[in-house]
């Protein structure tokens, strides 16, 4: 069941058309169609092995697709490596965050793109911009001069997301940002995602957690066995429908469980 009504008056930030990727005998992605609009959160869901990570890595330039086109801001692009993707304005926050524990927050935020003051690092300006950025995100970081090793999981996630924003990207991809987080920290990261949307970014959120998806996503794209299996508007769907699309049947372990529960309650 695919909802066809397009969102009103929105621009497409990123659009994939007929993207396929093969690893030897395995067809990891087959004819994927995906549109990300400016100022929306698109959740990418699917079971293990559905091709979510492959798709994210393809967009990020880690893999190059075997077939298909990708267009960014309406222009057809060919992303050969992660640096090119970043240069275009596609930022990715991978699941392992890739932070340097021994460096402080400022060091991590500006890693690889440090500001210079004559020959030296411009620590003052970097610190000022760090605070500005973190304040815009209403991020709760006690100090930008402590090593990130001493931050909590949610704060580390915040630093990783904030870092992705320094290059002024148009699209941000978040790979399982709440997977390892507690309740409060999850909420913090979800707030952050909403603030990215308010800034007018296209956000791709890869997640296994249906509650998170229903809470922040505008649309949900379902992948199943490497193919598109429907795009849903969150406001017009229930999580049951999405789960059905993920597992490929209305009769799935999740619905069976739910049915057993309701029967048990009735009995």
């Amino acid at each position: 069941m695919t909802v066809t009504t397009a969102p009103v008056e929105t621009d497409t930030a990123l659009s994939l058309h007929g993207v396929s990727k093969r690893f030897g005998a395995v067809q990891a992605l087959k004819d994927i169609e995906l549109d990300v609009f400016v100022g929306e959160v698109l959740a990418l869901v699917g079971d293990n092995g559905a091709g979510k990570s492959t798709l994210v890595k393809t967009i990020a330039g880690v893999y190059s697709p075997d077939e298909g086109d990708m267009s960014f801001n309406g222009e057809s692009v060919n992303v050969a490596n992660p640096a090119e993707a970043q240069h275009l304005g596609i930022a990715t926050v991978f699941q392992d965050l890739a932070l340097c524990d021994n460096l402080d927050v400022v060091g991590n935020l500006f890693l690889g793109s440090e500001l210079k003051h004559r020959w030296a690092l411009d620590e003052v300006e970097m610190e000022r911009q760090s605070w500005e950025l973190l304040r815009q995100l209403s991020a709760k970081i006690p100090s930008v001069r402590i090593p990130v090793a001493s931050l909590s999981g949610g704060q580390r996630q915040t630093v990783a997301i904030a870092r992705s924003l320094l290059g002024e990207p148009k699209v941000v991809m978040l790979d399982e940002p709440t997977a390892a987080l507690g309740v409060a920290q999850t909420a913090e990261v979800l707030n952050l995602i909403e603030r990215l949307r308010e800034r007018g970014l296209g956000v791709i959120l890869v997640s296994h957690n249906m509650a998170d998806v229903m809470a922040v996503a505008d649309r949900v794209a379902v992948l199943r066995l490497g193919r598109n299996n429907g795009v849903f508007h969150v406001s017009q769907t229930s999580s049951q429908d999405i789960i059905a699309a993920i597992t490929g049947a209305t009769n799935n372990p999740v619905s069976q469980r739910a049915a057993r529960h309701t029967q048990g309650e009735e009995a």
């Binding site: 965050l97 890739a98 932070l99 340097c100 021994n102 460096l103 060091g107 890693l111």
Partner: peptide
């Protein structure tokens, strides 16, 4: 310092 702390993070940066 970054490479010494986390090579993979440094490479991705």
């Amino acid at each position: 310092m970054a490479v010494g702390g986390n090579v993979e993070a440094a490479r991705r940066a």
